[in-house]
Nucleic acid binder design. Structure first.
Lengths: 205, 205, 205, 205
DNA sequence: TATGAATGAGCCTTCATTCAT
DNA sequence: CATGAATGAAGGCTCATTCAT
């Protein structure tokens, strides 16, 4: 278990800052070397702390992975829910959703890589249950939006299910080739993806 | 190194058959539990051999992963090259390519899952060089076909690069949700993916 | 690689002390059972550490053998070089050299036994290169002194080369029979050996 | 246990010839790589037999080492005993003994290297008891001759014990530097060694 | 005789984690 | 808070040996 965080606000803030730094560093190392291939000693070296010191900020290696996934999913899910709750049109919501999503790919590339690469690890085991639930929520939200897109304008996707899976595949694969200063911005990529999904319908329009 | 295979044809054939069975079983276990999370003992239990006995058929755990990837990529690449060398039109080639690819997803789902999930593992290290090269070849071949699709009919993709990455993302993600007896056949999925890529162009047709 | 030694002087000193104890214990066990026949578990039992704990002090079993050889050869070589650089007569240097050498046999008998018994092990492999070089240096130094002995007084050895090999054989074999409280002291043995080498010449004197 | 050798004389002879070849090859490999570092598979490769086939000729790896030592010690001891039983003068016996000994170094260099290098291995364990006894006998015989050398001519060795150990050290070390076509023949070396031992006395003669 | 498959114990080493300081 | 020492349970792999064929 992580050492109980301090109660005094000043100390608490310092604790949080350092913990945050540890998690970010860990995300970088996990993204580069993989979760299993990274030892606590590796993390110690990367953070500048000794092995024992790490355990003040993380409860365990597993919880560290949870923290990385949470840092990614919590704000993403929050924004996604806000968008889904807005009164924009369904296809506008879809565009915004993918933009926000790609924005996370851009700004939390390491987190995203870890979340994606360690998918198998997260698949079973109680310690990841929370993370799995969040992912499920996000995918469900996505599915709902796609459904509403179709509901608002009939016959939109050749196959809605396939479109959903395709979208998940495309976006989740992005961090593996995306270059921050590349030819395409995250936004352009987001719009490009949506275009692919929506286009088949449009041709008949 | 794997134990030198026997010289007599009969024994050789039995050796090959068993080795093949070991690789297939390993693919199943790796797909389910992940490469790192699977121990040699796990494989021993799954194959019915003792730990040491496995090493008659595999040279090492690493080489076993190579074997799995090779079993997947060699025939896939061979078929892909045949298609690319055919005199079918570029977009017909593309369709065939994705169908063949999806056929591998269907028939070698475990291999595909492993190849995809352990992407990070394969990324560095001399022992995987061969595998990386095969993947690169396949992706290059795909890129070439996409290029020819555009060459034959101007303005085909909103962004050809993006289309390539999208396709890779979609197909590679497929084994994670595809169900053999599901609503969509592998072929339908393949065609669906190609449709997504080609449609934007077509709408202007 | 051995765990990075601590930086604080106090800890560093404790680390060094314990490491030294581990090496000495290992020398004793290796001398008694042989390098290959001694398992890390054996060493753990002998040192009172758990198997894993040993690795704080040694980088590997191989490096432990290097450490033992170094502890023996570094001071021996240093003293030998000092003697060779002195302005004593060549045959005085020879006597001193063999005395110093035998002194090492006496005070580091275990190290000497290991160094001698594992000669074959040390013969090839990059990890022992350093040790081989030290041994070579020592033997060369010995050869040089023998040469100067002859240069100062013509016709000293029936065959200088043979004398060198004989000396190496005699001294290196000593730890296998030498008893600390035996009839002959290390010094007497040293002088006895030199006497054997020099006598043939002397008889003609 | 080695498979029972065949009873028919013809088969028996073939068996013996092959067994002899296996032992000789094993001696070569053990000399080069060391007993512990040589696996049965290595021996299989070196002999051209399969692992299982080896066990028709050797009972176990340990017994193979015994065989090598026996092939060396039996004839050496036999010859040594013949010499010791002859009515030659003691110092003539000594010379002959060392010549015979060096002859074995020359003609069975691999056996000698193994016998010497694996000294530690042979030191304990019932399976080597026989070998240890043979070595002991040889050394005792040597000691006896040295004693008689002194008995026949007073004051021969500065220290008889030391002379014995020195002789053992010198000769046993020889296979590690001796070159068959080198400047010195085995005989010259033998005589050189004896000269070293006898000379101190002789100078007073 | 000879083979190669198979065993299972044991090897060296790594690693997440704990704890006295 | 932080350290580095220490643990002990795996981990991947090798190896002498056996045995059905």
């Amino acid at each position: 278990m992580a050492a109980a965080p301090p109660t005094s606000p000043a100390l608490r803030s310092r604790f949080d800052r350092r913990r945050e730094a540890v998690v970010t560093t860990a995300a970088r190392v996990f993204a580069a070397r993989g979760f299993h291939a990274t030892s606590i000693q590796d993390l110690a070296a990367a953070t500048g702390l000794a092995a024992g010191g790490l355990y003040h900020y993380i409860g365990s290696k597993d919880q560290l992975l949870v923290a990385i996934c949470d840092e990614l999913m919590e704000p993403l899910l929050a924004q996604a829910q806000a968008i889904a709750a807005s009164d924009a049109s369904a296809d506008r919501q879809l565009r915004q959703l993918v933009r926000v999503w790609m924005d996370h790919v851009e700004r939390h590339r390491d987190h995203m890589l870890v979340f994606q690469q360690e998918r198998r690890v997260l698949e079973s085991g109680r310690q990841w249950q929370h993370v799995r639930r969040r992912r499920k929520q996000f995918e469900q939200l996505l599915a709902d939006v796609l459904e509403r897109v179709e509901a608002e304008r009939l016959g939109r996707f050749a196959d809605r299910d396939l479109a959903l899976h395709a979208l998940l595949g495309m976006v989740n694969h992005t961090p593996q080739w995306y270059q921050p200063r590349g030819r395409l911005s995250a936004e352009q990529i987001a719009d490009g993806y949506v275009e692919l999904l929506l286009a088949p319908e449009r041709r008949d329009a």
